[in-house]
């Protein structure tokens, strides 16, 4: 009896600890978002979206940075998505489970933990200098693609792993080839999980600053990119630049730009949730 009460007490204690831990994160997030909204919401208007950067905070806008972010996002998607998903399928379905595969696996997991600035240095040397792309949208997108590839690969593998083996077995039993099984059974069944992983990885890419600064993204560009070899700026760089200015008007601008950036990531995460529930 005594023991039972003790265990119940422990159970209750752990429950409250768990609630407390959950709330810490949420409260911090709410405080942060609230603070940003108070600082920046009144600054957002159409002019803020369509103006060029300016020395006068109230005339300044995010047009070129926003367009740069969208271009970067687009190219990062079309580069990282097919490569990452194909690599994930290969590792999960085709590769033999030998030492080489084990080595690949460990390396991919390790790559997912490499600090982003290292990818920036790699991108600077390989894409900007050796491939001679210059500090362009394409070089930036390739760099960010490398950065998120490990995440996309791991997410793809997890999603494929979650497909019940009975579906695969049934497909093979009906005489389908491996490719037919992947194309008609596995990919449709795991599509939601794969897309969720890809979109979450892209949400990370859209917030990266350090690798793009190293690659040579600019802080002041008076034009939106018109082709993949144009120079660019992105929202996080614009925010970083404004935060470091002494005039309070720029701090307000930074808050407003953070709201726009948050909005983009929320929309992308929303799409991810939608796909996860639909499949």
């Amino acid at each position: 009896m005594n023991n039972l009460r003790k265990n119940r007490l422990k159970d209750q204690l752990f429950k409250f600890w768990g609630i407390f831990c959950t709330i810490i994160g949420l409260v911090l997030l709410v405080v942060f978002i609230g603070d940003i909204l108070v600082d920046g919401l009144r600054r957002i208007d159409w002019g803020f979206i369509t103006n060029l950067p300016s020395r006068k905070p109230e005339k300044s806008g995010i047009y070129t940075a926003l367009m740069g972010s969208i271009w970067i996002l687009f190219f990062t998607t079309i580069i990282a998505f097919p490569i990452g998903v194909a690599a994930g399928i290969y590792l999960e379905e085709y590769s033999k489970k030998n030492k080489l595969a084990g080595l690949l696996e460990i390396n991919i997991s390790n790559l997912a933990g490499v600090p982003s600035i290292i990818y920036g240095l790699l991108g600077l040397e390989v894409f900007v200098r050796i491939m001679n792309l210059g500090p362009s949208v394409l070089a930036g997108s390739l760099t960010l693609s490398l950065l998120i590839l490990p995440i996309v690969i791991v997410a793809t593998r997890e999603a494929i792993k979650a497909v019940p083996s009975s579906i695969k077995d049934a497909s093979f039993a009906l005489g389908a080839s491996k490719w037919q099984t992947i194309w008609h059974q596995i990919l449709p069944a795991s599509g939601g999980g794969i897309l969720t992983g890809v979109i979450l990885a892209l949400s990370r890419a859209v917030g990266e600053t350090a690798p793009l600064i190293v690659v040579g993204a600019l802080a002041y560009v008076p034009f939106a990119p018109e082709n993949p070899l144009d120079e660019f700026s992105v929202l996080p760089i614009q925010i970083f630049n404004w935060i470091s200015r002494p005039q309070p008007g720029f701090i307000e601008n930074a808050a407003a730009a953070i709201i726009i950036l948050l909005l983009i990531t929320f929309i992308m995460n929303g799409i991810a949730v939608y796909f996860r529930n639909k499949w």
Binding site: L52, P135, I213, G216, A217, L218, A219, Y220, V221, P222, F223, E231, I237, N241
Partner: peptide, 14 residues
């Protein structure tokens, strides 16, 4: 830009 709108000046912060 107001004087020479067709000249694009880009500025980085390396």
């Amino acid at each position: 830009r107001a004087v020479q709108p067709k000249v694009n000046v880009t500025v980085g912060v390396s």
